[in-house]
Amino acid sequence: MRTLDNYTEKLQHRMTEYCRTGSPNFLPGTNGKGMKHYRRLSFNIFNNTLEQAYPITQEFLNEKEWMELVDGFFSGHDCQTPLLWQMPYELYTYVEENDLKLKEKYPFLPELIYFEWLEIEVHTMEDIDITAEYIPDKHFEGTVPLVNPEHRLVQLNYPLHLKPIKEAIQLPGQYFVLIFRDPEEGNVHFINLSVVFVFALEQLSQQDLTINELAIMISEQFGVEDTGEIKKHLKGFFEDLFGQQAVLGYKPKK
């Protein structure tokens, strides 16, 4: 049952439109000074939240460009999440999906924003309980490494995880990154990966595999004959990940 008159509804729409665009929108029985504060306060909520989420992007763009980005987003994108802390993710989808002038000038902009969001995402992602029984040690002979489930594996076109932004954008290429959260402190860490190790992690995410089995798969996939050498590298790799808590231990192979 409708309880609100069209007229009142229109007043409310106009109010939010004014906040989002700042363009004069006649609203009866209001005072201009108060209206301006609503525009300022709501814009600041967006600007401050985005500045906090995207410090590298904000620093990289000049002030005019940053304001253009925030303003375009605030006025042009309908934010869907009720959780303010998730709102910055919608800036990423907005930049990804829209033809923005800024993207012509900086083709890496969506990736930069995505990269910054990833850190927030991994830091805040909901806890994933580990149901499997495992031993928190690095004995990877004949056992299955247990990868810390609180991670993302991504491919980047710029080494944003390795270099300051201005250098990173000069080095387009194929980069693979494991981003994970350590279980104790909850800090986020980035590990640069070669394509072989990405392959190994992807296989492991699909089924329980020992280092031996992984070595054989890698040998077939990449045409490397010396499985002994591959095994050695894999062992070192998982031991290193264990040291950083990207791998939490091992499961006995059933």
């Binding site: 008159d5 409310q12 109010m15 939010t16 906040c19 934010c79 999440t81 009720p82």
Partner: peptide
């Protein structure tokens, strides 16, 4: 107050028009 219209959140507390129909609507 309200923080959303037309399916878009703006995360700020906006003033509801103090009107008869708004009383009924908000109460509902």
């Amino acid at each position: 107050s309200y923080t959303k219209t037309n399916n878009a959140h703006i995360y700020d507390l906006l003033p509801i028009p103090f009107r008869e129909d708004a009383v009924k609507h908000v109460a509902t």
